[in-house]
């Protein structure tokens, strides 16, 4: 208590009183002038100290804000540029396919249109339309404030946040339930597409997604829903909902579209029907794409026969989609819209 009393009752430095007493005893006035050099110098020093401390300890937001603004503008510009280019790729791809079909007709070879279409569907190169289900998965409503949820094992993610592993399991479950074509937020999943994560963002086919994650799966809506819910992925999803409040809604629809995978490109080509005049061309083997990229189409072999057409087959390198999606089931009921 002595300490507190001293602090409260006598806050003034005791030295002042003693010095005043000494000066009074020596016959001088108790107070010295406040205009001595020492006092002025110290006053300047104190002002300097205050200013420097205030300046250096205050956060300086202006520069960071400006830089952030510039970066956001650049990101938005580049994203727009990217989507423009994607649209252009899609348009040119359609043109190429049309020209291919024309050339095929004019070459007088066997009619391969149906086969090409079938393979294009399998390679996710063309947009598809048909009945299916949409599964919307979203982070928990209170991702940050959700303290009640238990900690999730083996992840640095916040609880209640959809992870890439969740999406992988769900998508694989949809494939297993009979989905014939799947896209997530408008990104078609080809057999080479992978669902990964970078930091906290989910990357599908090297393109980052933002929540909510809308998974469009074409196929028999009834069948998919019936098969998905009791499957492992369905149970996993309901566990996520129960434990981490991750939201998910599944709805069937009669007419859904999935876009084509604009990054699909030719990796392996081989001639079919080496014997001229063969009426039944052997179905081209879908090769595993572990082969080295051969100039992306430039390596297509020239037609060997005189009139027999060279068939270009998009490869389905399932092995490179290590953590990605399974190979889609063979589509049977899909129609090509264009």
């Amino acid at each position: 208590m002595t300490l507190l009393t001293t602090m409260m009752e006598r806050p003034l430095d005791a030295g002042y009183q003693e010095a005043a007493d000494r000066r009074a005893a020596a016959g001088l006035p108790p107070a010295t002038s406040t205009r001595t050099v020492l006092v002025v110098v110290l006053a300047i020093l104190a002002g300097f100290l205050f200013a420097v401390a205030a300046q250096s300890l205050r956060p300086k937001p202006t520069a960071a804000v400006a830089v952030k603004k510039v970066l956001v503008t650049r990101i938005e510009t580049l994203q727009k540029h990217g989507s423009d280019q994607e649209a252009r790729v899609a348009a040119l791809g359609k043109q190429v396919r049309d020209l291919e079909a024309l050339a095929l007709q004019q070459s007088g070879g066997p009619d391969l249109t149906a086969q090409i279409k079938d393979l294009e569907v399998q390679a996710a190169a063309v947009p598809l339309k048909g009945p299916g289900v949409t599964l919307t998965v979203d982070d928990a409503a209170s991702t940050v404030a959700d303290g009640t949820a238990g900690s999730r094992p083996s992840s640095g993610f916040e609880d209640g946040r959809v992870t890439s592993a969740d999406l992988q399991i769900i998508v694989n479950g949809l494939w297993g339930s009979g989905a014939e074509a799947i896209s997530i937020n408008g990104h078609r999943l080809s057999s080479t597409a992978a669902i990964r994560f970078a930091g906290q963002a989910i990357i599908v086919d090297f393109r980052p997604l933002s929540r909510p994650y809308v998974i469009t799966a074409l196929g028999d809506p009834q069948g998919i829903q019936q098969l998905f819910e009791p499957s492992f992925a369905g149970l996993y999803l309901s566990q996520l909902t129960d434990q981490y409040k991750i939201r998910s809604v599944m709805a069937g629809a009669d007419s859904l579209t999935v876009p084509g995978d604009s990054s699909a490109r030719l990796e392996v080509a081989q001639p079919i029907g080496p014997t001229v005049g063969s009426t039944a061309p052997a179905p081209p083997a879908l090769r595993s794409g572990s082969s080295t990229p051969q100039g992306s189409g430039g390596a297509s072999s020239t037609p060997t026969g005189t009139s027999s057409s060279s068939r270009l087959t998009p490869s389905a390198p399932a092995s490179s989609a290590a953590q990605g999606t399974g190979s889609p089931a063979s589509p049977t009921s899909q129609e090509n819209p264009s």
């Binding site: 002042y16 009183q17 010095a19 000066r23 108790p30 010295t32 020492l38 110290l42």
Partner: peptide, 10 residues
């Protein structure tokens, strides 16, 4: 208080 002293202050 009238007891200022420059040396004590410094």
């Amino acid at each position: 208080d009238g007891i200022f002293n420059d040396k004590v202050f410094v």
